[in-house]
Design a protein around this nucleic acid. Structure first.
Lengths: 324, 324
DNA sequence: TTGTAAGCGTTATCAA
DNA sequence: TTGATAACGCTTACAA
């Protein structure tokens, strides 16, 4: 491996001169600078991250953490993060929950964006600090170094459910996500509130608790089918579960939307392809925003005000129209 | 930030003793070891990666590089990689092409898996070295430190095209991927060879060169439609383009498969949902394998033999059956 | 404009 | 069983 020493030797200067060139200091002669730069290219010199990081004590790498490989919207979020990062001189690194704490604490990165059910609030509180800001998606957490970006789950689920009510549906089933997550809580609460306001009864036996994976939606639908009378509509806390439910229903000859309506949440690629009525979360945009806020906070701006992103209902054909 | 010094001070020992404990050396008294370990927990000590990396000169982090956020199969590959890595004491870090070379060269990682069109062969040759093995997916490249894992594109595309011929189709169109990629070359060559063996003429005006994105399949189909007589079947070098093509066709009232058949390659989530005939690439498995080979090579095994993974055709309903 | 030298947090060698 | 110390590659005062 070629190091700063090799460059210095080849250029016939001291290592500090090389270092000054590499760090854009202006106290180096024009000719010397060019000679050194050229040598770095030729010898393929890349500064050792450890040496540099050790000395500088900071890093311009940001971390994105996620661990759910079932949901394609993570790619869109990464796309947004990546596009923003590429406009700056920061680098992006992505990790899973297994190593996230290590990478947050060992000074390799300067801040983190996280969207991971496995990430404990307590760990975030422990880790966020003056020079390690964090951006959290889909969760609200009070901390002077943590910026939260959430989707207006409540409002958009209200809009969806009210729309379903307006279309004449009365007997509802709900397939929820992991109960501890804020987004699931908000979606479910909105669902309950709208039914309540419309004086539509909801029997909690029509609530099924899933885990946002397709399989749990599949199971939920199976169970609903065992339970005798099916609801008229299955409101699902995300698209994956809605798709699982549709598969289970169609395996049993139950047609969507003729026999039962189904809705999702996310607007995944699959939802679009299948014509699922759902709520569109602007994933690219929130990735982009998250990266922007994180980097600004790393640079010293201290902005941790809660940010709410609007999602919008997409009516497609898994719910019958007003004509019902 | 709490460092080894703080632990040493708190425990009333020297930093070398703490270091010995952290590195599992057995030359430390039982009582001292426990006391130190307990303190590390209590004080939330995490070894500084820079200091450690600087001294050790190696790393047990592996890197995965990709930059295409349009294709969900990357998540499955990551899933496979992650699952293997989690069984070891290595960590996984993911980066895009922008920073990949930096992370490969600055000693932060111990090896890399890459699946990125933007990654130049020349860069791989420059970077792979004795203590920096690389695993490359979807590309064959001769280098003593690079292991290649490829899909049997040629054989599986042959099987697909022969099957289409057997079903009675004669007038073919082909929507290709980026021309410089090996996988696209192989898929196209298989296509040509099978037609040739069956004495079926192929006019190169029925070849369209895309970029593996949905939009280019969409454009391709539009162009085919402008060209007057449509082929009987559109063989696409991947699913995304096939789906784009289907969208363009159906926008123009052309039905699949009644008016034209379409096939893809990848077996993406969408392909499954839409019933697209395609070739299933075992993505999870090749991610898992890639991680395994990489880590073995980092540990000193020098295995760079070309590995071919079998893909299988999934006949679904975008091609008419034998009855045609 | 350039060079010398201290120090970042850790590990490894050697002495106690 | 433990501790002092050099070294890893780099940046940054400060000296020349």
């Amino acid at each position: 491996m070629v190091g700063i020493k090799d460059i210095a030797k080849a250029a016939g200067v001291s290592i500090s001169t090389v270092s000054n060139v590499l760090n854009g200091k202006k106290n180096v002669g024009e000719e010397t600078r060019n000679r050194i730069l050229k040598l770095c290219q030729e010898l393929e010199y890349y500064p050792n991250a450890a040496g540099r990081g050790l000395k500088r004590g900071n890093s311009n790498i940001i971390l994105f953490n996620f661990s759910d490989f079932d949901r394609s919207f993570y790619l869109r979020i990464i796309n947004g993060i990546s596009d923003y990062v590429n406009q700056t001189d920061f680098d992006l690194l992505i990790c899973t929950i297994k190593s996230c704490e290590k990478f947050m604490r060992n000074n390799m990165t300067g801040g983190c964006i996280t969207l991971d059910i496995g990430m404990e609030n307590e760990m975030l509180h422990r880790t966020a600090r003056e020079n390690y800001p964090i951006v959290v998606l889909d969760r609200v957490i009070e901390n002077p170094y943590i910026k939260c970006i959430v989707v207006n789950n409540y409002e958009s689920m209200r809009e969806l459910v009210q729309g379903i009510v307006d279309r004449g549906y009365r007997r509802f089933g709900f397939i929820g996500g992991p109960e501890k997550t804020d987004d699931n809580k908000e979606r479910y609460q909105a669902f309950l509130d709208v039914l309540n306001e419309n004086h539509i009864p909801f029997n909690s036996k029509n609530y099924f608790s899933g885990d946002y994976r397709e399989k749990s939606g599949f199971t939920a639908a199976k169970i609903f089918m065992l339970g005798g009378e099916l609801p008229e509509v299955l409101v699902c806390a995300n698209d994956n579960m809605a798709i699982g439910a549709i598969k289970a229903l169609s395996e049993n000859g139950i047609r969507v939307p003729e026999d039962i309506a189904v809705t999702g949440f996310d607007n995944s690629d699959l939802a679009e392809a299948m014509g699922l009525t759902t709520v569109d979360i602007p994933n690219y945009e929130r990735g982009y925003l998250a990266a922007q806020y994180l980097i600004e906070n790393i640079m010293g701006k201290r902005n941790v005000e809660l940010f709410r992103i609007s999602a919008r209902v997409h009516w497609r054909n898994t719910v019958l129209g007003k004509s019902k």
